[in-house]
Design a protein around this nucleic acid. Structure first.
Lengths: 215, 215
DNA sequence: TATTTTCTTGAATAGCCGTTCTAGTTTTCG
DNA sequence: CGAAAACTAGAACGGCTATTCAAGAAAATA
């Protein structure tokens, strides 16, 4: 039992624990795990759990029944990755002081999603304001009219990210990144260099705004 | 052990279970409950748990360790109570098909809060759009500039609710309910009849919007 | 091939778990 | 007061739990 990668059965075991907790509201016992995975011996279950624990994927409370905890708990929330301002590089927060915004219940698919804090008024006419949280679902493709996070990649320069509406203009054979602010001009990129210089990082699926003081 | 009300110790026991689950990620054992509440006998704990179960506050899985579940699970979300449109009565959803929106992590105080779906464009210049969810924290008082849910109470008529900014105009001795739409006029109420005819139901503390199709 | 690592079984142990029972005490209420 | 209801302690039970150990099978590695 050294390091290397987590094996198939261990991944399945972890998934089962995750599902069990979600369904039953409590972690499974070692025996229940064994039963579910067709493992005949409780010692065998313990063997794999010990590995998962060494890997830091779970933690256990000695001798306590159902004493398994998932290290990364199902937060049901999306991490706030940083801020985004039109034309300026993405300002990534240090993950140490990471907040999360949680939006639940299937209204929004939060799988792998992250949130960004909007700086500036480039999308103001779409009613996305300075300080709003935009929830971004990572994807590399998008459809006309989607609000996307697009990154301009240049050699030697850190990519700069921007929040815009995406339009593919077939008749002009170019891509238009359209701000929602009549004072600002769209960015027009010839289709030929689009793929080399630009990358769609994700699409905005939700917006969240705090207002008033919480008191 | 008949019906009547839940006793002090039973309420404390329920609270402990709730806290334990939150803190430990699993329900407590009967013995842990006893220890925490200075109950010497496990049979005694079982006695009160049986009552809580009969009352429908918890459910138990026979013989299973830590087999306690709270009947109403801690949703961490705010219920969507209905829709609100300026000047029209609040349209309350039947609680049977109740959704919730969850917003977590202390960004917003969700205690007792509820959400409403905005209809119309009366607050459009504050960038609150048709279809947005507004999270409302119930309170009867508010400060100048707060966005509030105000209800007009008339005799024999069901109160009609409206979403407006609240301003107390001392020089005119009246209250102004200001829409954020220059096409709409504010509602002006003399201070003298304000308390009798109007009631502030709560204040908007957050806004949530889905956008784009989730696919 | 030989050798290490990983995986699997089975049994055993000491303690924890839910449940039940008996036998009291305290409180409530007529 | 007296009776019913609610509450409490203690013990005892069979089953479940986590953990450990010894021993072997299978797979990977060299």
């Amino acid at each position: 039992m050294s390091s290397e990668q987590t094996s198939e059965i261990q991944r399945k075991m972890y998934d089962f624990i995750e599902r069990y907790i979600k369904a039953e509201g409590m972690p499974p016992t070692n025996r229940e795990i064994g039963r579910a995975m067709n493992i005949a011996s409780t010692g065998h279950v313990d063997y794999h759990l010990t590995i998962l624990e060494k890997r830091g994927m779970i933690s256990r409370q000695q001798k306590k029944s159902r004493g398994i905890k998932l290290t990364k708990q199902p937060s049901n929330g999306v991490p706030v990755a940083g801020t985004i301002a039109a034309g300026q590089p993405l300002d990534i927060f240090p993950s140490s002081e990471q907040q999360t915004v949680s939006l639940g219940n299937g209204l929004v698919d939060t799988e792998n999603a992250f949130a960004l804090i909007v700086k500036g008024r480039s999308m103001i006419e779409d009613h996305i304001c300075d300080g709003d949280y935009v929830v971004v679902k990572p994807q590399t493709t998008c459809q006309n009219g989607d609000i996307v996070v697009a990154v301009h990649m240049q050699e030697g320069v850190e990519g700069s990210a921007t929040l815009k509406r995406f339009f593919q203009e077939k008749d002009h054979d170019r891509v238009r990144l359209q701000p929602a602010n009549s004072e600002l001009d769209p960015i027009l990129i010839p289709r030929s260099i689009w793929d080399q210089e630009w990358q769609v990082q994700g699409k905005v699926v939700a917006i969240f705004r705090q207002c008033g003081n919480a008191a």
